[in-house]
């Protein structure tokens, strides 16, 4: 139910914040999505989409943290288990 899927904004239409929409690509399948909750979103950015609405933009820098933590584990033979 709280499923939300990441997609990339291809274009944005409408000047009114409440009814502004974007064409969002989910691995090639394109849907029209409301951008009312992410007025700052830009073309080319990834958003998380739930029930027809983008609920947030995804942060590319933060996305790597899961792997950064893994790389740290790989590098040290005695991993610390601290923080990601």
């Amino acid at each position: 139910m709280c499923l939300a899927v990441p997609g990339k904004i291809l274009s944005i239409a409408g000047a009114d914040e409440l009814t502004c929409t974007g064409r969002v690509s989910f691995g090639g399948i394109v849907k029209e999505i409301s951008l009312a909750l992410v007025p700052e979103a830009k073309v080319g950015e990834f958003v998380l989409v739930h029930a027809g609405f983008a609920i947030n933009t995804l942060d590319e820098n933060e996305a790597d943290k899961t792997f950064k933590y893994l790389r740290e584990l790989e590098e040290t033979d005695e991993p610390t288990g601290e923080e990601s």
């Binding site: 139910m1 709280c2 409440l18 009814t19 409301s34 739930h50 029930a51 027809g52 609405f53």
Partner: peptide
Amino acid sequence: GIGFETTAPANAAAVLQAQQ
């Protein structure tokens, strides 16, 4: 209108759009 906090803004925005 079922759902958690995740779905609440979609419900609220639909009401605002209906009003507008």
